[in-house]
Design a protein around this nucleic acid. Structure first.
Lengths: 346, 346
DNA sequence: TTGAAAGCGCTAACAA
DNA sequence: TTGTTAGCGCTTTCAA
């Protein structure tokens, strides 16, 4: 059994719940609170012997500094906020979840905790509340919008923050995958394979990521001297109905390749093609700018770009904590990707 | 523009970041901190006039009490912990996410915030850390295991907690859907429809929910005088391979109905059947004990049980906060369900 | 190298 | 009804 739960090893007075304070430690060791504090924080001069004595005692007696008291004294909370878009479609959730898991891990490594708030559409009340209540030292914003009220709010409130995704706003520290390169690379490969007639189906263009992927697509075409003007681009496809309509339209043309900005769209495109009896890749090639579990197990396997959502969260959190510690951080943190060529574009 | 950001309405001394303290308010009003505190908390006697004066001032000057200071004084954090299983398969994530969103909403309604920790398999270090650091007033545990170390840890550490899911441990406050009734009801309906030969494919039987669903399945059979011993049950099916193997086996028999304990299994079963050229429901009927987006858009639509993950989170959090406020709460909180009969079992 | 004392912003006896 | 005072557990000047 754990000897720290019910009684004191030294046989001293038993204390409820084993909640030692810094004063207890100081008294037990016959030194001052200041010294104990210094031993723990490592700040200020302190004798090696004293320091060891303190460290040993707190380890053996399982003393944990109270982060609330520390927070009050230092005007810190040791919490960082994770702001989720509340209006995500179900299929987006795993991405943000993984991302969040990465953030939590690196937060904990630096002795921070992660506090959640959801922002629904343009209702920022949850975010405002938590910032104004000073329950956070910094904020990570997941997913950026082209016109982003939340970014503006965060700038105004002068709380340190980073965004997962890209933003055109000045002075915003961003962590994002290199979507432009990834998408243009994949697109260029498709063109090189001899696919001249293709189409892009994209999500809402108020999300930066969708715009960026579209730009990457165009860039890839241009790099191969294909004329983007001849390539149809359907943005803002959200519902299953819209996508079915677009696919119907495509099927009337001689286009033989559909590129999708994300996994969800791709999933629905595949369902529609199946329904219409179109075989991939024989009758129609399909590629996605974002790979995920929902298309991963498709038959045939889908050509797609692979990112690491968890890494995104990890790096974002680490960067934020660097900011909190007043280290210099790059304004833009670009993470990698992997283009996976599969049977769907053969 | 918001007049509270840069200057003081009363033309008084401008303060950096507009961070008023209770002392500022007291001084400005020429009263004591205690009185201000009482006006805000509503505790203790206080004159109507004084109270109004205080409330008006804090509203106009946008004063927000510092929750850290309050926390230190009251030995509370106003945080509750949301403990996620870190080892969820991707398809489980949306469930927990929705559930968490419900929890966050009701937490905020009571002026609490939600702090995340992940528990990977049997590694509880994240949970231990956050509990021992006293960063939480209570904990919500998402998903229960048959042998659950986390529940034991929480009981030992004497922190208030509730679980989302069921548990056989004593004295554990549980919030769960009525899986037994739901699954037995659906099963009984299938039998009544004349389906005698069926099979259950289930997930890991270390998760309480899977065991409960299996029990519900058996109960439904018994209720219709079907002999459970003649009905094969394949638990612990996790990987795609295992499921394909089980389905292969089933296809060799005269079984014409596959019941799945969850959406993920169902999804893989459907994929396998498609691969084998088996038509649903003509050649094989399919039902799922859990509906979600990944099977919802299947053609044909799948007979499944519908729960409300968000409600689960909402109720769990509300219950926990009741406990924190020392209200009486039921040991077991049972939420509803909906059996949706669709074409897949016609 | 160490300690005394003040203070972070709030709550809660106890007095008045 | 209101105020005085003493904490909550820690950090941080300033002195020794």
């Amino acid at each position: 059994m754990d000897n720290s739960t019910n009684y004191n090893v030294d046989g001293q007075e038993m204390r409820e719940e084993n909640k030692l304070t810094i004063t207890d430690v100081a008294e037990a060791l016959g030194i001052s609170k200041t010294t104990v504090s210094r031993a723990i924080s490592g700040k200020g001069r302190i004798g090696e012997a004293t320091r060891n004595k303190v460290m040993e005692y707190i380890r053996e007696n399982n003393y944990k500094p109270n982060p609330i008291a520390k927070g009050l004294a230092k005007s810190k909370t040791y919490n960082i906020g994770w702001v989720m878009p509340g209006d995500t479609t179900v299929t987006d959730l795993p991405f943000f979840q993984r991302c969040m898991m990465g953030a939590v891990e690196s937060a904990i490594a630096a002795d921070y905790d992660v506090l959640i708030s959801m922002v629904y559409d343009h209702d920022m009340s949850q975010l405002e509340r938590v910032v104004k209540n000073r329950k956070l030292d910094g904020v990570i914003l997941a997913r950026t919008l082209v016109e982003d009220d939340r970014i503006r709010f965060l700038k105004e409130s002068e709380i340190p923050f980073v965004v997962v995704g890209s933003s055109n706003e000045d002075e915003v520290v961003q962590i994002d995958n290199d979507h432009i390169s990834a998408c243009s690379e994949l697109t260029a490969i498709l063109v090189m394979k001899g696919i001249k007639k293709m189409v892009l189906i994209g999500g809402p263009d108020n999300q930066v990521v969708n715009v960026t992927r579209r730009d990457g697509f165009v860039k890839g075409l241009e790099a191969q001297n294909a004329n983007p003007d001849e390539i149809p681009i359907h943005m803002n496809c959200e519902t299953e109905k819209e996508i079915e309509r677009v696919v119907d339209e495509i099927l009337k043309t001689d286009i033989r390749c559909i590129v999708c900005t994300d996994d969800r769209i791709c999933y629905m495109v595949l369902a529609k093609l199946r329904k219409e009896g179109i075989t991939v890749p024989k009758d129609m090639k399909v590629a996605s700018f974002y790979n995920s579990a929902i298309i991963e197990s498709n038959q045939p396997p889908i050509t797609a770009i692979q990112y690491d959502p968890k890494e995104l969260g990890t790096v974002a959190c680490r960067t934020l904590i660097d900011i909190l510690n007043e280290k210099e951080v790059p304004k833009k943190n670009v993470l990698g990707y992997e283009v996976m060529l599969k049977a769907s574009t053969q």
